[in-house]
């Protein structure tokens, strides 16, 4: 039989150790000082907060490679609308679970960054008051045109339409994407390049095969012709 109340005192000892320990060890602190701290600086001050667009929060443990907030549209060059990757195929619109994407397809085609004639979205709206950041649009996109942004300061005083992001707000350059998600962007670019080379190799192989076939056919024909000649002789 232990002394009544000894359990409580044991618990108090733990609380006391945590209280004193929190002055010396950060992991004893029940509160987490978040993202915008710089390593080793406590307490954090507002100067650490990212000011410029695209500037990353410095602590990599909290804003990570895969962090996602709302989608953005990628473009490759300096002129956003001329090099937009989206071809308005509307797959993302149809697979969006909360149905927050609205796309209107252009009527005529326009050259994209690789010089191919493509459709482009005349309207591309995302209602971020409905979007739930699930990233399914990114996964279904066959053109790598839509990816997740990690920008989170989107509050607006306008309830009607203030949170409806239009094409201009959504378009971001591939460089910006590299800045916010370096690893993911690099992997994606590598995959696109690989697919391109594979496609070209396949095309080349197909062309070669066709050439060979044609040659073989021509060869067979000449051979047959020779035989005929021989028979005739």
């Amino acid at each position: 039989m232990t002394l009544l109340g000894s359990g409580i005192f044991k618990g108090m000892a733990v609380t006391f150790r945590n209280f004193v320990g929190s002055y010396f060890h950060r992991e004893r602190l029940p509160t987490n000082d978040y993202s915008w701290r710089t390593e080793g600086s406590l307490p954090q001050h507002a100067g650490d907060y990212p000011k410029e667009e695209g500037e990353q929060l410095r602590d990599t443990t909290t804003v990570t490679n895969y962090s996602r907030n709302f989608p953005m549209l990628l473009h490759d060059g300096s002129e956003p609308m001329d090099t937009i990757r989206c071809v308005a195929c509307q797959i993302c619109e149809r697979s969006c679970p909360p149905q927050c994407i609205y796309i209107e397809k252009s009527t005529e085609k326009k050259e994209d960054s690789s010089g191919k004639m493509q459709f482009y979205p005349a309207t591309f709206d995302i209602d971020v008051s409905v979007c739930m950041s699930c990233q399914i649009c990114v996964e279904v996109c066959p053109f790598d045109a839509i990816v997740m942004n990690s920008q989170f300061e989107l509050s607006t005083p306008n309830r009607f339409g203030g949170l409806l992001l239009h094409q201009g707000d959504l378009l971001k350059s591939n460089d910006y994407y590299h800045k916010i998600h370096p690893e993911e962007a690099a992997a994606r670019d590598k995959r696109i390049a690989d697919e391109k080379t594979a496609k070209e190799a396949k095309k080349k192989a197909a062309a070669e095969a066709a050439k060979k076939k044609a040659e073989a056919k021509a060869g067979a024909e000449t051979e047959a012709g020779d035989e005929k000649k021989e028979v005739a002789e």
Partner: peptide, 12 residues
Amino acid sequence: EPTPHDEVLERH
């Protein structure tokens, strides 16, 4: 009440 999202829903 009307929201900017209505047209999207309608299309769906």
